[in-house]
Design a protein around this nucleic acid. Structure first.
Lengths: 177, 177
DNA sequence: TTAAATTATGCAATTAGTTGCATATAATGC
DNA sequence: GCATTATATGCAACTAATTGCATAATTTAA
């Protein structure tokens, strides 16, 4: 399980609330980690109980109070321990491919429109990632070096989405033929 | 949840045992669905209770009896119903990218050796997929047409792995620099 | 001006998935 | 000759993740 470690790594970079983490997962980091708000809030509670993070409450007018979490020394130690161990390669469960695999039981039009819908989602993701990349590339050398590792993960997102779109184009052609 | 539908789709193509399904997931279909044996056996029980599949027992000498499952008319109906609905795009949770993202807390050597380990796993997967592709390409036109849709999903695996490896090469270069 | 989206959190119940254990033979490799 | 891998299934306990519900003010867009 590494939602735990994903959260620790994010909080090590910068303290934040559950909602902040949620936004990071939903926006920029969605190409490598996804989680619902429930999971994040529950995990933050666990991590606090384990003393891997601590929490300060920030008063806000109107909105509910914001709980700002930050990592502890014990939390940093936990990350380092985790980093020294192997991680499992990514488990893939792709329902769209199941749908295509069994696609002879439905219409070509259905397959094509579903594919089209996914293409547009992936295209949106790619555009978002390229925008982030452009911001990165406009930084000075020092900052580029500082954010080199996150940038490498961003490149995974970009290359992954480009390959997905290339496949989808090929797939569309083959379905029609 | 579409392990259920992944199993139904596989059994629609060809009846088989839980173990047969496990092998399919672990070998050829691992690039689009993964499941442990427990999950498969449990799901087969559920599907049987729902009368979406039925089961014949095949006696074997030495080994435990093999339970051969096949899909029912109700099961086919369930697939068609599912195929008519939208599927969610793939949720990604990639621990290796978390590791790289927080990689400043560990050594470059550690990152590189982990990356190298994953490269070799992905290379193996790609080789396996290309072997399957070659078999497909040597079929006659009629059979190629028949297996067109599964082949499209195979292409996703191939293009996905190739893109992953291209990224990894780039990443290695950047980490060293 | 009214509806919808955003900000911000969390309990409770359920479903999905993993891990550990258990059994038992045959075939393969060292 | 001995260890490992493959064949073949499944219970029980646990952990992880999702879904439904709940609250409540602010900002934004139609």
């Amino acid at each position: 399980m590494s939602l735990k470690h994903a959260i620790l790594v994010l909080l090590e970079t910068e303290p934040g609330s559950g909602y902040d983490l949620l936004k990071q997962f939903n926006n920029s980091l969605g190409y490598f980690w996804n989680a619902k708000h429930q999971q994040i809030y529950q995990q933050l509670k666990h991590l606090t109980n384990e003393a891997l993070i601590t929490c300060d409450i920030e008063q806000q007018q109107g909105k509910p109070d914001k709980k700002i979490y930050k990592i502890t020394a014990k939390g940093i130690h936990e990350i380092k321990e985790w980093l020294s161990q192997r991680v499992e390669p990514n488990k893939i469960n792709d329902a769209l491919l199941v749908k295509l695999y069994g696609g002879h039981l439905t219409s070509e039009a259905n397959l094509l429109s579903e594919l089209e819908r996914h293409i547009s989602l992936h295209q949106q993701t790619l555009t978002k990632l390229l925008t982030i990349e452009n911001k990165y590339l406009s930084l000075d050398d020092e900052l580029q070096t500082k954010f080199k590792l996150p940038y490498i993960t961003l490149r995974r997102g970009i290359l992954g989405e480009q390959a997905w779109l290339a496949w989808a184009k090929e797939a569309k052609g083959m379905i029609k033929k």
